[in-house]
Design a protein around this nucleic acid. Structure first.
Lengths: 255, 255
DNA sequence: CGCTTTCTTGAGAGAGATCAAGGGTAGTGG
DNA sequence: CCACTACCCTTGATCTCTCTCAAGAAAGCG
């Protein structure tokens, strides 16, 4: 029964998804335990991993692929909080507070996940202080993501500002090379007018979805993208987006 | 030096701020340790406890009084996330992720707090599993508050909806009698058209601040308050607000 | 009783939502 | 290879909600 999944589970020890941002950055002894737990699963594109409001019975570790994390209202409106990727732990905050999932998670592309039942995970936490540390950090990051969304929606005065913020956030999240836990710095002093490094990243979202992230309408996303392109702030090639001068984008629109 | 504060610190064992929502709901042995740690402090009204962006060196436990938790943008715009009260732990999420405070906390009335240095707190956590549990719950609640703010701002289509949501949230937060971790249920099924219990609560915020919570302007808050009063949804007496029929408020405006 | 802070109400303007229509592109199947 | 469908993007026109500006009333406070 467990055996059937060992092929994937065995990867835990050799897996390269590590680093300070990854939940799976653990000592070998904890990884050995981790690979024994839970069930690995493959999912196709646009599959729902967990749904808001349902009992939080499992935590999911992302082995590969990207997913979107969202909340929705009864009338179908959607808010996308962030894009999750390899090394992320999904549903942790809800699992810990012992309640229901507070978000919905859906794959954006084929994904490999590892599902761990609540009680197993709690035991795993009690056994290893490193797991506790990574759990704290993971929950703190979920918190930061929610906070950034709230910031963007409340503090941006215009649609352009909301979109610019969302793009900068997406770019920074996609880039593991920046400082680990310092996403779109609400830069108080960093307003150097020097042209900054272009930021290149893949954006696996439709205009509709980008709108749901920035809290603006689909049409407005289109119009602003053209505007940003005209102003040489943005380049696009299929899914790939380049922010030509992130600093200028920031100073021009992120007020 | 420590002695000078023992008067207050000694209260920990007798303190009545307990219950499932309180961080200080701990066994006697942990409380004994708690009372030895940190420094108690009295603060007047409108005092800043901790400020967004500053190094997260301490956690603050609220012994008495209410405080507002907010984030702000460089141009002075403000978003109020929630009102904290006795039993809340402030700055926990930031302290754990080892970074800077992600919010600003300011007293709304005279408050008594207990400030605990980061390292002491981390040791305290490692020593007691109950402390770890309460920390998890506390961080999860900070997370839920951020999420609720994001929801309110993104998913509400009108200013009335935003305000109604904010009021319902404030009412539920102020009421410890409801289920512990189930604030403004985004009620999918609960749309019973029966008149609900009136909700009474104290609202220590100006219209300006309520606007900062709902993401609408001061004047719009005033106009909507009059409207809600006209429609017999709301009653006011100084700081005290009564939501006459919370369900009707919810079904009419929280779409 | 002046002074500050907060609340109230009105009038006007503008940003963005919404509605509408058309074009591009990818996948499917004959 | 080409029609056909489905989905997404693009652009224009209109309209409405809420912000902003303005001016005054109420209320709290030294």
């Amino acid at each position: 029964m467990q055996m059937a999944n060992n092929l994937l589970a065995a990867d835990c020890l050799k897996c390269s998804v590590r680093g300070p941002r990854s939940f799976c950055g653990l000592p070998a002894i904890a990884l050995q335990e981790l690979q024994r737990m839970g069930v690995s699963q493959h999912l196709g594109s646009r599959a729902v991993v967990l749904r808001e409001g349902f009992s939080a019975g499992k935590v999911f570790l992302v082995c590969s692929g990207r997913l979107k994390i969202s909340v929705s209202s009864s009338d179908g409106r959607l808010l996308i909080l962030r894009i999750a990727g390899p090394g992320d732990a999904l549903g942790l905050a809800s699992l810990l507070s012992g309640s229901r999932y507070s978000t919905t998670v859906e794959t954006l592309e084929p994904c490999t996940l590892k599902a761990i039942p609540r009680d197993d995970f709690l035991r795993f936490m009690e056994a290893f202080s490193d797991v506790r540390r990574n759990t704290s950090i993971s929950v703190a990051r979920e918190y930061e993501a929610a906070l950034l969304s709230a910031r963007r929606l409340a503090l941006s005065t215009s649609a352009a500002a909301k979109l610019a913020n969302a793009l900068l956030e997406l770019a920074h999240m996609a880039h593991p090379n920046g400082t680990a836990l310092a996403p779109p710095t609400p830069s108080p002093l960093a307003s150097t007018s020097l042209p900054s490094q272009p930021l290149d990243f893949s954006l696996p979202l439709t205009h509709e979805e980008i709108g749901c992230m920035a809290g603006i309408s689909r049409e407005t996303v289109t119009r602003l993208f053209s505007k940003f392109r005209r102003e040489r702030l943005l380049r696009q090639k299929g899914e790939n987006v380049t922010l030509i001068d992130p600093n200028r984008l920031d100073t021009l629109y992120c007020v």
